[in-house]
Design a protein around this nucleic acid. Sequence first.
DNA 1: TACTGTATATAGTATTGCTAAGTAGTGGCT
DNA 2: AGCCACTACTTAGCAATACTATATACAGTA
Lengths: 113, 113
Amino acid sequence: MDNLSEMLKGVLEGIVLEIISRGEIYGYEIVKYLTQMGFEGIAEGTVYALLMRLERNRLVNIAKKPSEMGPPRKFYTLNEQGREKLMSFWAKWDFLSSRIEILRNNGGNKHEL
Amino acid sequence: MDNLSEMLKGVLEGIVLEIISRGEIYGYEIVKYLTQMGFEGIAEGTVYALLMRLERNRLVNIAKKPSEMGPPRKFYTLNEQGREKLMSFWAKWDFLSSRIEILRNNGGNKHEL
DNA sequence: TACTGTATATAGTATTGCTAAGTAGTGGCT
DNA sequence: AGCCACTACTTAGCAATACTATATACAGTA
């Protein structure tokens, strides 16, 4: 799979919000989770920058906790605004993906809906 | 539906390539077709800029023809590179949308695949 | 003349993901 | 002690792409 990066724009944020919505989690763990999901190409820097943005935009709550394995971890949870943003993401995703499926299934039809 | 623009990044090009693949078409008609599809927010300027990019990247062939209704039209068709780009788009789309469905359907599960 | 619809082009901006580099803590190996 | 690997977070600068706004131009009509 070559470069997904452009297609991830506007989608990665939603994916990360959904992951956080499942329960308190910290950045490094999110990166590993994304890798497990098959998003191997997503750079750590990208995820951390996105998390900083979520914080700046007040979509998340943060709790810093010590780790036994290294430096302290920043745990994220969604706040009310974050949950709204997540719902908005799914609405947009459903809209976009349904349109695209219509387009694709419209098969041989030449510029007709 | 509020702002889809970020989510369209990397997707709109694929949509337009797919539309062109159905048969010779010109920019203004593509804009109207997208509007019909429900993408009412997509600005004309966006589509024209994208078409210029397709041309610059040699993904399309172009035939300029006079119109009875206004200025001449630029008709686009896909060339071989364009068809390859389109296939690559669908591969990426399938990858991304399948991962997202997995994430979504993973429902209450807390950070497990 | 002025306005609407058809048709294309472009300059400048904002958003967002990427690369690359740096900082730090813990533990294992030599 | 010194080096490396893994854990964990941050930041500066770059690239790609959609948006806004504006400009150009032709045809028909009030």
